[in-house]
Amino acid sequence: MTSGLPVLVGIDGSRDGIIALTWAAAYAGLRQAPLHAVYVVDEDRQLPVGTPPPGPDDGSEVLDDAGEALDRIGFSAATLEVRHGHPAQVLLDLSESSQALVVGRRGMGGFAELVLGSTSQVCTALATKVPLIVVPDTWDPAAPARGRVVVGVDGSVEGQEAVRFAFELASATGAELFGVHAIQLREAWPDPSTWQDPARQLWIQNADELLSETLDGWTAKYPGTVVRQHAVTDHPVRVLARESQDADLVVVGGVGRTAFSELRMGSVARGLLHHSHCPVAVVHHPDP
């Protein structure tokens, strides 16, 4: 599990940015990869009315804080850099020569647009790029690992990249992989009283089969990884947010075709990023 490309993380001087930096350092160590931490000075950022203009910002204080945080956890394979421009655009440009992009869920405003901004803007920028990992401020770097990676499964070819990422991480950390397929029932479903066997929930059976077909091939590639699966009738955000309470990471695909289709960074993904208790990885197919 190695790569010469760095893990890229956005820092902004906030506690949230330090939490994201800590997660990124752990991930870089797991990948045996260097870490590239970047603070982007956004000189065009609009300040709230009545806020006095800030003084000159050379980024030195932010980099010092980041360096101290890395020293505390004993991570030395890192480069710290200041850039100028639009934070989201700078990070997306740098991500083209990185293996993953990590950002905090909240902060001092620097990266909020990357996560919660225009769906079309973010989708266009990220559709063919590296995995995006969003670390919430509720994640505790000092807490013991849960030993569980959750992945949202939709059975699509495009979603296989997310499943691969989840299996790879679960295998490297010795975690259990938990595959989830969420189904939102439509009014068009036939009345159960008309079925030959009303006690047999057809959508659950179909979902279980989809999960097995998706996960079985990867299970053979990672025979040492414990795999469980769960099909449920509920809203994807509720399902994944609930599962995130006992997970180290929730992984979703960037393109889907069923209940997870909106996880292209649409309403479901944004809802999950708001409500997840653990980091969330959005992994796009390389050729959507």
Rank of each mutant, 00 (worst) to 15 (best):
S60V: 10
V157I: 12
A199W: 00
R148C: 13
L215T: 02
L94Y: 01
E176P: 02
R105A: 13
A175G: 11
F75P: 00
R270F: 12
A125N: 03
E113S: 13
H235G: 11
D287I: 14
L249H: 02
L5W: 04
L101R: 00
Q201Y: 06
D140R: 07
V62N: 01
H235T: 10
R228N: 13
S193Y: 08
D137E: 12
R45K: 07
I18C: 02
V90F: 10
P54W: 08
P141R: 03
I204L: 15
Q245Y: 04
P286H: 09
A69E: 13
E243G: 02
L185H: 02
A269C: 14
R164Q: 14
A170S: 05
G109P: 05
I19V: 15
V157N: 08
T258G: 15
V283A: 14
A281D: 00
S244G: 06
G59C: 06
E43C: 11
A145F: 05
G104D: 01
R186C: 10
V252Q: 08
E43N: 09
V49T: 11
S97G: 11
R186E: 14
S60E: 11
E262L: 08
I183H: 03
V38S: 05
A188P: 00
D58G: 01
S118H: 06
E96I: 01
L126K: 01
V251S: 04
L210C: 07
V49M: 12
M1E: 08
V283I: 04
E158M: 13
P34T: 05
K221W: 02
A125D: 13
L240Y: 05
V283T: 13
V134D: 03
V237N: 06
L202E: 13
A166Q: 02
L92I: 14
V226S: 11
E113D: 14
L116E: 00
P286W: 10
H285P: 01
A188T: 14
M1R: 02
V157K: 10
D42K: 04
A207H: 03
F111I: 06
P198S: 09
A143H: 07
R105H: 06
G85L: 09
G217I: 11
Q32Y: 11
F260T: 07
T119F: 14
S76V: 13
D12Y: 05
Q99P: 04
M108P: 00
R270H: 15
R242Q: 15
E68V: 15
E113Q: 10
R106N: 10
A100D: 08
P131S: 04
G266T: 07
V115F: 10
S193I: 10
G271L: 06
